[in-house]
Design a binder for these strands. Structure first.
Length: 221
DNA sequence: GACCAGGCACATC
DNA sequence: GATGTGCATGGT
């Protein structure tokens, strides 16, 4: 088996797992909040935090913006890192209201790269969070890279070991059609496969990509 | 109890 | 520029 294309790998993942129905958020704003809360955190914990905000009827930009950082932290506690994330939500909301009048429509009207650049300038929003917001909240054609993406494609020798975020992203931007639905589903499938088969300590057995070439022999279980 | 989770900022070398 | 550390809850 030689090196497969990105599309081959996509098909293999899709055949195994089927559509993942991402992003599991109701509205663009809920997706943005979820993107910040899910930083290094299991989605099940994020759901509890978002549930708290929903139950308290706070899940709009206006209502969240009125809360103090301490109040925010109280609601999002189950998501972990709640002090830091409350601060990050606050930074986003302050920026949203100061620079864009609190309007998500205003954000949606920005070009993909302008939106990405502005999001990255907000303290607490790094490349993955910015790109998740661009793709999943605003349907911008930007591929989302996460720890699983780097790990899986690194272990299979498709990106150089130690590659940075943009280098991994370039692989996908260069090798795939600029297709929002494809970007959306591909990232979700990578996360799905990673959860089951690509832990930091390798457990490749049963992985749909198990028989593909691996970079480091020790990475094959 | 150990390990892991859909990162990021900051300190230090 | 690379590498290490703090941040925290909750599931397996």
């Amino acid at each position: 088996m030689g090196r497969p294309s990105l599309v081959d790998i996509y098909n293999r993942l899709y055949d195994r797992y089927g559509p993942q129905h991402w992003w599991p958020g109701e509205t663009p704003f809920e997706i943005i909040v979820g993107a910040i809360l899910t930083q290094n955190t299991a989605w099940s914990n994020v759901e509890k935090a978002i549930g708290n905000l929903n139950k308290a009827d706070r899940l709009t930009p206006e209502k969240l913006h009125r809360l103090s950082v301490e109040q925010l932290a109280g609601y999002i506690r189950p998501a972990g890192y709640f002090n830091i994330k409350a601060d990050r939500l606050k930074h986003f909301l302050d920026w949203l209201f100061e620079k864009h009048g609190g309007s998500l429509e205003h954000l949606k009207a920005l070009s993909p790269l302008t939106l990405r650049e502005q999001l990255l300038a907000i303290k607490g929003i790094g490349p993955e969070t910015a790109d998740s917001i661009c793709l999943y909240a605003f349907s911008k054609p930007i591929f989302v890279v996460d720890a699983y993406t780097a790990r899986i494609f690194g272990r299979h020798g498709m990106v150089e070991p130690g590659s940075g975020y943009e280098q991994v992203q370039d692989l996908f931007h260069g090798g795939l059609d600029k297709d929002i639905a494809l970007y959306n589903e591909y990232h979700a499938l990578i996360v799905r496969a990673g959860k089951e088969h690509c832990k930091p300590k390798p457990r490749c057995s049963g992985c749909p990509l198990e028989d593909l070439p691996h970079q480091i022999e020790a990475d094959v279980c």
